[in-house]
């Protein structure tokens, strides 16, 4: 029984371990002077040897009219290449701390049976691409990386590590938005960073593969997926789950028929 629960949530447990572990490492750098991982999700100094940087932030800064130093640019390239060629949009469900907040909202939404009908309004999931474009466009106009000044991801990190100030209100607002206003509102409709990684990781190696022969059309995967539109091939044809899939692996876990599993992307299909 217990082993079954673990097996049915293995990726979830792993994801939460990584997400919380990263927060502890970031926190340790500030609270106890650990040198494993200094910084935050915008840029991190790893083991005092090299930097990682958020390619979206570096891009906005470039648009605003400042070319960052080599440390940040190389760091951004490392991150971009990792997600674009290997891990896909996995930042969103394996690294980003906001994911835990919005997942909690989703969980409560389901618990309280707040279905889509309870949404005040709905809007397109493509909105995030407009937000992405708008952010890049606004950066040179306002003379600062436009998304970074309102970025709830780094705001949450700052809140946990350095103290919230009024920042908690933004996070609470985001949680309530996902809980009461729009299902998967932030991560699935608005966040430009998710849009950025979706757009750049189309050809990443790690993807979920669907085997239509094994599928019994139980629809469990649709019940857990945060980006349902990516499952359009399920029950229809075999292939890879693409587009906005964040490789969270929930569908793989809940599938009782072994019809969905992590695989290496075959470029020929």
């Amino acid at each position: 029984m217990m082993t079954n629960i673990i097996k049915k949530n293995r990726y979830l447990i792993l994801r939460r371990t990584i997400q919380i572990g990263l927060l502890i490492l970031f926190g340790g750098a500030n609270w106890w002077g650990w040198k494993f991982l200094m910084g935050n999700y915008s840029s991190a100094y790893v083991l005092e040897t090299f930097y990682l940087a958020d390619p979206h932030a570096v891009l906005q800064t470039f648009a605003a009219g400042f070319v960052m130093s080599a440390d940040a640019i190389i760091g951004a390239v490392i991150v971009l290449v990792f997600y674009a060629l290997i891990a896909g949009r996995s930042f969103c469900s394996w690294v980003c701390p906001i994911n835990m907040i919005t997942d909690l909202a989703t969980w409560m939404r389901k618990k309280w049976k707040l279905t889509k009908k309870e949404s005040f309004f709905t809007f397109s999931r493509k909105t995030r691409y407009w937000v992405l474009g708008l952010g890049i466009l606004l950066s040179p106009i306002v003379g600062v990386a436009a998304f970074e000044v309102i970025n709830p991801i780094t705001m949450l990190h700052r809140g946990i590590i350095f103290g919230f100030g009024m920042g908690w209100a933004v996070i609470a607002g985001l949680f309530l938005f996902d809980l009461l206003v729009v299902e998967y509102g932030w991560c699935g409709h608005l966040c430009p960073l998710g849009a950025f990684y979706s757009a750049t990781s189309r050809f990443s190696l790690i993807k979920v593969k669907h085997d239509v022969e094994k599928c019994t059309m139980c629809m469990k995967c649709f019940g857990v997926c945060h980006e349902e539109q990516v499952l359009h091939i399920v029950g229809e044809k075999s292939g890879f789950i693409k587009d906005e899939c964040s490789n969270c692996g929930r569908c793989v876990e809940v599938c009782d028929d072994n019809a969905l599993k992590f695989s290496i992307y075959n470029y020929k299909i």
């Binding site: 500030n30 800064t61 605003a64 009219g65 400042f66 940040a72 970074e148 700052r158």
Partner: peptide
């Protein structure tokens, strides 16, 4: 204000 990537590494250092 443009250049700072807001990572807080200086604060930790």
């Amino acid at each position: 204000v443009k250049a700072c990537i807001r990572c807080g590494t200086c604060v930790e250092a």
